[in-house]
Amino acid sequence: MNPILTGFKEALTLIFNLDRELLSIISLSLMVSGTALVLATAAGLPMGAFMGLKKFPFRGVIISLMNTFMGLPPVVVGLFVYLILSRSGPLGFMGLLYSPSAMVIAQCILAFPIVSSLSHAAIVHVAPVIRQASMTLGATPFQVTLNIMREARYGIMSGVIAAFGRVMAEVGAILIVGGNIAGYTRVMTTTIALETDKGNFELAIALGIMLLSLSLLINMFLYVIQKKGMVTIVR
């Protein structure tokens, strides 16, 4: 009778009878958030290293801004991206609104400050001796940076994991720019929101449980990578 309990039961049933629709929803979630995370990391890591290792004017301001942007409200990001991509907006000619691409862009904006801020924090905490030692051993500035980032990899990984958590759980931005179109831009979080609206609480809870389990699996995988220290640093 209790929707939470029946939700657990339904979650198990759903997992055992994975239908095509649900599979496509899950894979779209992973694809959108995964692509956003890769792009945000590719841009955020150099940004974090730059903020951590270089002295430049307004550095403090930039760092504070990045820290603030970690708390960007998804709805605001969604609205911003909507207005940019709308047919009446500056990039409307690209026809990207209400597509998975638009969702990737929005989530990228949400993930980028987290990756850059947290990797910045990890990098500044690397003992100065690493930098000095690398330099005395004749490393080029680029090699020095790589060494420092290797030392900071645990912290950087935490940043990437935090950013992943944020985009996987996010619903406000992708609802606005994706439109929650069935079979096209419907992902796990927007399905949960819709099923809640439709009064299908058991199904909504079941999907929530699946989403959490999926995140758990991915985080366990990331933990193993972190443990093994196999992190290959993306330039």
Binding site: L39, Y98, S101, I105, C108, D197, K198
Partner: peptide, 30 residues
């Protein structure tokens, strides 16, 4: 980012010859 995203996400989009977009209300959907 703006340049690379459409390319990378293009594969996500299913190819359908004709599709139109209809903005509607929650009462019809729910």
């Amino acid at each position: 980012l703006v340049l690379i995203v459409p390319v990378s996400a293009q594969q996500l989009e299913t190819t359908s010859a004709e599709r139109i977009r209809c903005a509607s209300t929650t009462s019809t959907e729910n």
